[in-house]
Nucleic acid binder design. Structure first.
Length: 215
DNA sequence: CACCAGGCAAGTA
DNA sequence: TACTTGCATGGT
Protein backbone atom coordinates (compact mmCIF):
# COMPACT_ATOMS: atom_id res chain seq x y z
CA UNK A 1 0.00 0.00 0.00
CA UNK A 2 2.81 2.36 0.89
CA UNK A 3 4.65 1.72 -2.37
CA UNK A 4 1.54 2.24 -4.48
CA UNK A 5 0.86 5.59 -2.81
CA UNK A 6 4.48 6.66 -2.85
CA UNK A 7 4.79 5.92 -6.56
CA UNK A 8 1.55 7.77 -7.28
CA UNK A 9 2.01 10.91 -5.19
CA UNK A 10 5.76 11.20 -4.69
CA UNK A 11 7.45 12.64 -1.57
CA UNK A 12 5.10 14.52 0.77
CA UNK A 13 7.73 16.40 2.76
CA UNK A 14 5.78 16.53 6.02
CA UNK A 15 5.15 18.18 8.49
CA UNK A 16 4.60 21.52 6.67
CA UNK A 17 6.31 23.68 9.32
CA UNK A 18 9.62 25.40 9.91
CA UNK A 19 10.08 24.70 13.61
CA UNK A 20 9.03 22.20 16.27
CA UNK A 21 6.83 24.81 17.94
CA UNK A 22 5.12 25.43 14.63
CA UNK A 23 4.35 21.71 14.38
CA UNK A 24 2.77 21.83 17.83
CA UNK A 25 0.68 24.87 16.97
CA UNK A 26 -0.44 23.34 13.68
CA UNK A 27 -1.33 20.06 15.35
CA UNK A 28 -3.82 21.81 17.63
CA UNK A 29 -5.19 24.19 15.00
CA UNK A 30 -5.85 21.46 12.43
CA UNK A 31 -8.25 19.56 14.68
CA UNK A 32 -11.26 18.81 12.48
CA UNK A 33 -10.17 21.64 10.20
CA UNK A 34 -8.92 22.04 6.63
CA UNK A 35 -5.17 22.71 6.55
CA UNK A 36 -5.49 25.74 4.27
CA UNK A 37 -7.43 27.49 7.04
CA UNK A 38 -4.70 26.57 9.50
CA UNK A 39 -2.09 28.12 7.18
CA UNK A 40 -3.89 31.46 7.34
CA UNK A 41 -3.92 31.32 11.13
CA UNK A 42 -0.24 30.40 11.37
CA UNK A 43 0.59 33.13 8.89
CA UNK A 44 -1.08 35.64 11.22
CA UNK A 45 1.01 34.38 14.13
CA UNK A 46 4.20 34.57 12.10
CA UNK A 47 3.48 38.10 10.94
CA UNK A 48 3.29 39.20 14.55
CA UNK A 49 6.27 37.17 15.72
CA UNK A 50 4.07 35.06 17.97
CA UNK A 51 5.53 31.66 17.08
CA UNK A 52 7.52 31.71 20.28
CA UNK A 53 6.96 30.06 23.66
CA UNK A 54 7.60 33.24 25.62
CA UNK A 55 5.37 35.38 23.41
CA UNK A 56 2.55 32.84 23.58
CA UNK A 57 2.82 32.52 27.34
CA UNK A 58 2.34 36.26 27.83
CA UNK A 59 -0.30 36.64 25.12
CA UNK A 60 -3.84 36.78 26.54
CA UNK A 61 -6.12 33.97 25.36
CA UNK A 62 -8.53 36.45 23.79
CA UNK A 63 -5.77 38.04 21.74
CA UNK A 64 -4.58 34.61 20.59
CA UNK A 65 -8.14 33.73 19.58
CA UNK A 66 -8.28 36.79 17.40
CA UNK A 67 -5.10 35.81 15.53
CA UNK A 68 -6.15 32.21 14.87
CA UNK A 69 -9.68 33.09 13.80
CA UNK A 70 -9.38 31.63 10.26
CA UNK A 71 -8.68 28.17 11.69
CA UNK A 72 -12.21 27.96 13.10
CA UNK A 73 -13.21 26.98 16.66
CA UNK A 74 -10.90 29.82 17.55
CA UNK A 75 -12.05 30.32 21.13
CA UNK A 76 -11.67 26.68 22.15
CA UNK A 77 -8.43 26.32 20.17
CA UNK A 78 -6.91 29.39 21.82
CA UNK A 79 -7.59 27.78 25.19
CA UNK A 80 -6.21 24.43 24.07
CA UNK A 81 -3.06 25.98 22.67
CA UNK A 82 -2.57 27.98 25.85
CA UNK A 83 -3.04 24.83 27.94
CA UNK A 84 -0.31 23.08 25.99
CA UNK A 85 2.04 26.06 25.95
CA UNK A 86 1.65 26.54 29.69
CA UNK A 87 2.22 22.85 30.32
CA UNK A 88 5.60 23.11 28.60
CA UNK A 89 6.39 26.42 30.25
CA UNK A 90 5.44 25.24 33.75
CA UNK A 91 6.52 21.60 33.77
CA UNK A 92 9.64 21.97 31.63
CA UNK A 93 10.61 25.53 32.41
CA UNK A 94 9.95 26.52 28.79
CA UNK A 95 12.53 24.05 27.52
CA UNK A 96 10.75 22.71 24.44
CA UNK A 97 13.72 20.68 23.24
CA UNK A 98 14.01 19.13 26.68
CA UNK A 99 10.34 18.24 26.64
CA UNK A 100 10.62 16.65 23.21
CA UNK A 101 13.64 14.70 24.44
CA UNK A 102 11.53 12.83 26.98
CA UNK A 103 11.04 9.11 26.58
CA UNK A 104 8.19 8.47 24.13
CA UNK A 105 5.81 6.96 26.71
CA UNK A 106 6.36 9.83 29.10
CA UNK A 107 5.99 12.36 26.31
CA UNK A 108 2.66 10.88 25.25
CA UNK A 109 1.42 10.71 28.83
CA UNK A 110 2.27 14.38 29.34
CA UNK A 111 0.63 15.51 26.12
CA UNK A 112 -2.56 13.57 26.82
CA UNK A 113 -2.80 15.10 30.28
CA UNK A 114 -3.36 18.49 28.66
CA UNK A 115 -7.01 19.43 28.16
CA UNK A 116 -7.52 19.76 24.41
CA UNK A 117 -4.85 17.29 23.37
CA UNK A 118 -6.20 13.89 22.31
CA UNK A 119 -4.48 10.87 20.77
CA UNK A 120 -4.07 12.22 17.24
CA UNK A 121 -2.75 15.60 18.33
CA UNK A 122 -0.36 13.94 20.78
CA UNK A 123 0.90 11.39 18.28
CA UNK A 124 1.31 14.02 15.56
CA UNK A 125 3.56 15.99 17.87
CA UNK A 126 5.48 12.87 18.88
CA UNK A 127 6.06 11.78 15.28
CA UNK A 128 6.47 15.12 13.52
CA UNK A 129 8.11 17.25 16.20
CA UNK A 130 9.98 14.65 18.28
CA UNK A 131 10.65 12.31 15.33
CA UNK A 132 9.66 9.15 17.18
CA UNK A 133 8.33 6.08 15.34
CA UNK A 134 4.68 6.29 16.41
CA UNK A 135 1.99 5.87 13.75
CA UNK A 136 -0.55 8.69 13.55
CA UNK A 137 -4.17 7.72 12.99
CA UNK A 138 -6.79 10.12 11.66
CA UNK A 139 -10.23 9.91 10.07
CA UNK A 140 -8.70 9.30 6.64
CA UNK A 141 -6.62 6.42 7.98
CA UNK A 142 -9.72 4.90 9.53
CA UNK A 143 -11.81 5.41 6.40
CA UNK A 144 -9.21 3.95 4.07
CA UNK A 145 -8.64 0.84 6.18
CA UNK A 146 -12.41 0.46 6.47
CA UNK A 147 -12.86 0.70 2.70
CA UNK A 148 -10.28 -2.02 2.26
CA UNK A 149 -11.83 -4.43 4.73
CA UNK A 150 -9.20 -4.05 7.41
CA UNK A 151 -11.24 -2.15 9.99
CA UNK A 152 -14.84 -1.68 11.08
CA UNK A 153 -16.65 1.57 11.77
CA UNK A 154 -16.11 1.15 15.49
CA UNK A 155 -12.44 0.12 15.40
CA UNK A 156 -10.65 2.18 18.04
CA UNK A 157 -7.76 4.58 17.59
CA UNK A 158 -5.39 2.21 19.36
CA UNK A 159 -6.48 -0.80 17.30
CA UNK A 160 -5.98 1.14 14.07
CA UNK A 161 -2.55 2.24 15.26
CA UNK A 162 -1.60 -1.35 16.04
CA UNK A 163 -2.54 -2.52 12.56
CA UNK A 164 0.36 -0.44 11.30
CA UNK A 165 2.78 -0.78 14.16
CA UNK A 166 2.44 -4.55 14.56
CA UNK A 167 3.18 -5.23 10.89
CA UNK A 168 5.66 -2.58 9.84
CA UNK A 169 9.22 -1.63 10.79
CA UNK A 170 9.15 1.09 13.45
CA UNK A 171 10.92 3.75 11.50
CA UNK A 172 10.06 7.41 12.07
CA UNK A 173 10.77 8.71 8.53
CA UNK A 174 8.75 5.81 7.12
CA UNK A 175 5.76 6.44 9.43
CA UNK A 176 6.08 10.13 8.64
CA UNK A 177 5.74 9.53 4.93
CA UNK A 178 3.07 6.82 5.16
CA UNK A 179 0.70 8.90 7.25
CA UNK A 180 1.19 11.90 4.97
CA UNK A 181 0.39 9.74 1.97
CA UNK A 182 -2.79 8.41 3.61
CA UNK A 183 -3.95 11.97 4.22
CA UNK A 184 -3.18 12.92 0.63
CA UNK A 185 -5.16 9.90 -0.54
CA UNK A 186 -8.09 10.71 1.70
CA UNK A 187 -8.24 14.30 0.51
CA UNK A 188 -8.25 13.39 -3.16
CA UNK A 189 -10.13 10.15 -3.45
CA UNK A 190 -12.09 9.06 -0.42
CA UNK A 191 -14.72 11.76 -0.05
CA UNK A 192 -17.92 9.87 -0.75
CA UNK A 193 -17.77 6.83 -2.99
CA UNK A 194 -16.89 3.48 -1.44
CA UNK A 195 -13.86 3.09 -3.68
CA UNK A 196 -13.15 5.16 -6.80
CA UNK A 197 -11.76 3.30 -9.78
CA UNK A 198 -9.02 5.88 -10.22
CA UNK A 199 -7.91 5.67 -6.61
CA UNK A 200 -4.21 4.79 -6.41
CA UNK A 201 -5.19 2.03 -4.02
CA UNK A 202 -7.74 0.36 -6.32
CA UNK A 203 -5.00 -1.97 -7.48
CA UNK A 204 -4.27 -2.95 -3.90
CA UNK A 205 -7.58 -4.81 -3.69
CA UNK A 206 -5.95 -8.20 -3.59
CA UNK A 207 -7.07 -10.83 -1.11
CA UNK A 208 -3.46 -11.90 -0.72
CA UNK A 209 -2.55 -8.62 0.89
CA UNK A 210 -5.55 -8.62 3.19
CA UNK A 211 -5.17 -12.24 4.25
CA UNK A 212 -1.51 -11.75 4.96
CA UNK A 213 -2.29 -8.93 7.35
CA UNK A 214 -5.17 -10.73 9.01
CA UNK A 215 -3.08 -13.83 9.51
C1' DC B 1 -28.09 26.18 -0.81
C1' DA B 2 -25.67 21.99 1.66
C1' DC B 3 -21.61 19.76 2.90
C1' DC B 4 -17.01 19.11 4.49
C1' DA B 5 -12.40 19.67 6.92
C1' DG B 6 -5.44 16.13 9.26
C1' DG B 7 -10.62 16.24 16.96
C1' DC B 8 -11.73 16.74 21.50
C1' DA B 9 -14.30 17.50 25.56
C1' DA B 10 -18.52 18.43 27.97
C1' DG B 11 -23.26 17.50 28.65
C1' DT B 12 -27.13 14.24 29.14
C1' DA B 13 -29.66 10.16 30.84
C1' DT C 1 -21.25 3.59 30.48
C1' DA C 2 -23.21 5.09 25.91
C1' DC C 3 -24.88 8.66 23.06
C1' DT C 4 -25.31 13.47 21.71
C1' DT C 5 -23.90 18.19 21.17
C1' DG C 6 -20.82 22.36 20.82
C1' DC C 7 -17.13 24.46 18.78
C1' DA C 8 -16.69 28.00 13.58
C1' DT C 9 -14.18 29.45 9.52
C1' DG C 10 -13.55 29.11 4.52
C1' DG C 11 -13.65 26.36 0.25
C1' DT C 12 -16.38 23.48 -3.21
Amino acid sequence: MFHLLSAHFGPQDWWPAETELEVIIGAVLTQNTNWTNVEKAISNLKDKGLVSLDRLVSLPTGDLAKEIRPAGYYNIKAKRLKNLIHFIADRYDGDLAGFLNEETERLREGLLSVNGVGPETADSIILYAANRPLFVVDTYTHRILNRHGMAGEETSYHELQEIFMDHLPEDAPFFNEFHALLVQTGKNYCRKAPLCSDCPLSRWESQDNINHLKG
